[in-house]
């Protein structure tokens, strides 16, 4: 996913000399294609995320489109006030890019688990929050935030994500993407955990269980229409995210449902149970450990089908 991002951004930046990457000294190997081709358009701000983000805001206010780049919580939580005051309040064209949303860096320990970022970024006015679910969504999201004015957050996985969509014809910020039409239960997924949802659906299909499935590459603004429509036509909505329960994608869906008229669907959130992980392990292992893997999705679908 990170390679897709860099490749897509490189194409954009070749055509638009105002596009810059400012990295917080991360992206070894990953940023190399960009560095090799456009060394004038990439800046290493060092291990100094606060200054990196303010520098990006300063550059953006002079007309540049600036992508800040780092991993885990470093481009977001470490410098959240810079994103709030310097980027969002100034409507600065800064695109905050995180590689490693969720348990991507599972073995590196709690510091590297990005599991509250969606909630925190979503709480900021004038910040668009995007979490692509596969390589095609990642490419589309990278293009979409380039043309979306103001501050955006792009939450990526790392590498090894599948390509699940063949192509997406009409990618729009704020619009969910229908993967399949089913019945009784609608599964909503955001971010790279779409892998698990996809795997769950294949398993369920063998048993003749066919839920409706959507991906939500945009967490903010959330696609209210799709949520309400599905809530009217299904018994239950199951949200899936590699993120904490509090304030994340499931919460965004809950907010819409709580204020909607005439919807009966129950909401079930598959997310981290409001905790940090002191256990380490691969992304796959930790998803299983914390009940956010394909098996968890299968169980929730069956319970509510």
């Amino acid at each position: 996913m990170r390679d897709t991002f860099v490749k897509t951004l490189l194409d954009i930046a070749k055509k638009d000399k105002n596009v810059y990457i400012v990295t917080g000294d991360l992206g070894f190997g990953v940023l190399k294609p960009f560095w090799d081709e456009l060394p004038e358009q990439i800046i290493n701000a060092g291990i100094a995320e606060q200054n990196m983000t303010s520098i990006a805001a300063g550059l953006a206010m002079q007309g540049k489109v600036v992508y800040t780049y780092s991993i885990g919580n470093f481009p977001t939580l470490r410098c959240i006030e810079q994103i709030r005051n310097d980027c969002a309040y100034h409507s600065a064209n800064v695109k905050v890019v995180c590689v490693g949303g969720g348990f991507v860096y599972g073995s590196l320990g709690m510091s590297h688990h990005a599991t509250e970022d969606l909630a925190i970024m979503r709480a900021l006015p004038d910040v668009t929050v995007v979490a692509p679910g596969d390589l095609v969504e990642a490419a589309e999201a990278t293009k979409a935030i380039y043309t979306t004015p103001g501050t955006c957050y792009l939450r990526l996985g790392r590498g090894g994500e599948k390509q699940i969509h063949n192509k997406i014809d009409d990618f729009k910020i704020g619009k969910a993407i229908k993967i399949k039409t089913g019945k009784n239960v609608a599964v909503f997924s955001t971010g790279a955990i779409f892998d698990e949802v996809d795997e769950a659906c294949h398993e369920l299909e063998k048993e003749g269980i066919t839920p409706t499935v959507y991906t939500f590459p945009t967490v903010k603004p959330i696609d209210k229409d799709t949520i309400i429509e599905c809530a009217k036509e299904h018994k239950a909505i199951i949200t899936v995210e590699e993120h904490n329960l509090s304030g994340g994608f499931g919460s965004a869906v809950a907010e819409v449902l709580a204020e909607a008229d005439d919807v009966k669907a129950k909401l079930v959130r598959v997310a981290l149970d409001d905790r940090y992980s002191c256990i380490v392990g691969s992304q796959k292992y930790l998803r299983k450990q914390y009940g956010i893997d394909a098996q968890a999705v299968i169980a929730k679908v069956k319970e509510n089908y």
């Binding site: 004038e40 606060q50 303010s54 520098i55 300063g58 953006a60 206010m61 002079q62 810079q82 005051n85």
Partner: peptide, 24 residues
Amino acid sequence: EISTGSLGHGACMACGIALNAKIN
């Protein structure tokens, strides 16, 4: 040019504005 209030922000944004002058 910019709003400030939380300390340690404006100088860094100004640094970005100065970097823009250097680049361009």
